[in-house]
Amino acid sequence: MLTNDELKKITADKVVDARGTACPGPLLAAKRAITEVKREGIMEILSSDEGTRRDIPKWSDKMGHEYLGCLDESGYFRIFLKRMK
């Protein structure tokens, strides 16, 4: 896990904008998009769905990726993970 300051400095290799879609939309968008990220690359998921900030860490762990953390912006979340396999 990174600190908020460290997360703010990240320029992700892939940004998935899933704002405006309800669960499980952001999770499915993340699942699709991870294939476009190289190994050790960083993916950022934008979601306005509260459940996603809890879903992505669990999903990331299960898939063997590294969850880096989440920034709470006004009205949406920026969720970061590193593709590990």
Binding site: C23, P24, L27, A30, K31, K62
Partner: peptide, 9 residues
């Protein structure tokens, strides 16, 4: 929704 969640994993 449930089977989508399972497929995502």
């Amino acid at each position: 929704i449930i089977l989508s969640g399972a497929a995502a994993q």
